[in-house]
């Protein structure tokens, strides 16, 4: 079937095999200024979204957690604090440049000992079944080519009783908010991108990929299909971002 061989890359259709390469190119381009851009684009609110996700992760000292698409490691750094010296945090990304940035940042903050760094494709997680108390992916799922596959893999490596957390841009509810959000992401965002990283296209991709990402209910269904149970989600900032949670029972 021809449809299965293509996928969306922002608003464009590209061969499925090519999406990962294109996404990698986007993040190679923005890696060095990724943190600064996050602060600029979300006006610093991304920190609150991440805080909220961390509280939902329910981590305790001694837990093992896999953070996919860690980027520069905002979530992983908090997890490393929470699981304590006896715990284990696997910080991972599909993009080497991003992971290197993250690794440097962790070391600068004195976070060593309970963190490992791995280049991981979320569709093929190189761990045994039942390895982690928690698997998270923050602002990464929408860049994955086969999301169902990634969710199945996340479910597989989870210990019984463990949980998956997906923090991702989503679809805001109210009409006025939606209009303001569209204006911001298609007019303002690429311009900030051009000023800070000299890369307008990457940030246009960001805005488009958010629109193509499944909405709250659809993602919840996808998580259920992947085998996760008691799935729920919390809208943040009016649904601009949502945290989805599902358990392996």
């Amino acid at each position: 079937m021809a449809e299965q061989d293509t996928t969306h890359f922002g608003y464009q259709q590209v061969p499925a095999a090519e999406k990962a390469r294109r996404v990698r190119a986007v993040f190679d381009s923005v890696a060095s200024r990724y943190d600064l851009m996050n602060d600029l684009m979300s006006l610093g609110i991304h920190r609150l979204w991440k805080r909220f996700a961390v509280e939902l992760a329910g981590l305790r000292p001694g837990h093992a957690v896999l953070d996919l698409a860690s980027g520069t490691g905002d979530l992983a750094a908090r997890f490393a604090g929470l699981v304590g010296p006896q715990g284990r945090v696997v910080m991972s990304d599909i993009n080497g440049a991003m992971l290197e940035q993250g690794r440097r940042r962790m070391a600068d903050q004195g976070l060593i000992g309970n963190i490992e760094y791995l280049l991981i494709d979320a569709e093929r997680i190189p761990f045994d079944d039942h390895s982690f108390d928690c698997v998270t992916i923050g602002f990464g799922l929408r860049n994955v080519t086969h999301k169902e596959k990634a969710l199945q893999e996340m479910h597989r490596v989870l210990k019984p009783g463990g949980r998956v957390l997906v923090l991702e841009f989503s679809h805001p509810g109210g009409r006025p908010l939606k209009a303001a959000y569209d204006l911001y992401s298609f007019q303002v965002l690429p311009r900030i991108g051009r000023l800070v990283t000299q890369d307008e296209a990457s940030y246009r991709y960001l805005a488009e990929s958010i629109r193509m990402h499944p909405d709250q209910e659809t993602l919840k269904m996808m998580m259920k299909t992947a085998g996760l149970e008691r799935c729920d989600y919390h809208d943040l900032s009016g649904g601009i971002v949502a945290v989805h949670r599902g358990f392996k029972l």
Binding site: E55, G58, G110
Partner: peptide, 16 residues
């Protein structure tokens, strides 16, 4: 309060 090398984390909920 969760102390760590990079500083303190302050959480409003903790499951354990």
């Amino acid at each position: 309060f969760v102390p760590a090398p990079q500083g303190l984390q302050v959480l409003s909920q903790f499951e354990g």
